[in-house]
Amino acid sequence: MMDRRNLLRTGAIGAAAALFAPRIAFAAAPTDKRFVFIIQRGAADGLGIVVPVGDPAFAGQRGVLADIAEGGLKLDSTFTLHPMLAETGKLYGAKQALFAHAVASPYRERSHFDGQNVLESGGKGPYALKDGWLNRMLALLPEADARALAIAAAIPLALRGTREVASYAPSNLPDASDDLLQRVSMLYQGDAQLHGLWEQALATRTLTGDLAADNGRNAAATGALAARLMAPANGARIAMIETGGWDTHSGQKARLGAQLRGLDAMIGAIRTGLGAEWANTMVLVATEFGRTVAVNGTNGTDHGTASAAMLLGGGVKGGRVIADWPGLAQASLYEGRDLRPTGDLDGFIAGAVAAHFGLEPARVLPTLFPQSTAAQPVEGLA
Rank of each mutant, 00 (worst) to 15 (best):
L7M: 02
L8C: 10
L8Y: 00
T10S: 15
L19E: 13
F20S: 15
A21C: 04
A25C: 00
F26A: 15
F26C: 10
A27W: 04
R34V: 04
F35L: 15
V36T: 06
F37L: 13
G46M: 03
P56A: 01
A59H: 06
G60T: 03
E70P: 09
E70F: 03
G71W: 05
K74D: 08
D76E: 13
L81T: 07
H82K: 06
M84N: 15
G89P: 06
G93C: 12
A102P: 10
Y107N: 07
R108M: 10
E109R: 15
G115E: 08
L119T: 09
L119K: 02
G125A: 13
W133I: 08
A146V: 04
A150C: 11
A154N: 08
A154K: 14
L159I: 02
S167C: 02
P174Q: 05
D175C: 02
A176M: 13
R183P: 01
V184F: 07
V184Y: 11
Y188S: 08
G190Y: 02
A192P: 05
A203W: 09
R205S: 11
A212C: 03
L225M: 13
A226N: 04
R228H: 06
M230H: 12
A231L: 05
A239C: 15
G245R: 01
G251Q: 01
K253I: 00
G262D: 05
L263R: 14
M266N: 05
A276W: 06
A279V: 10
A279R: 14
M282A: 14
F289A: 01
V293H: 04
A294E: 07
G297W: 00
N299F: 11
G300K: 06
A309E: 08
V316Y: 05
G319M: 12
R320A: 10
V321T: 08
A323R: 03
P326C: 11
A329R: 07
Q330Y: 00
S332W: 01
E335R: 09
F348L: 15
G351C: 10
A354M: 09
H356Q: 13
G358S: 02
V364A: 07
L368E: 05
L368D: 04
Q371S: 12
A375I: 00
Q376W: 12
V378W: 04
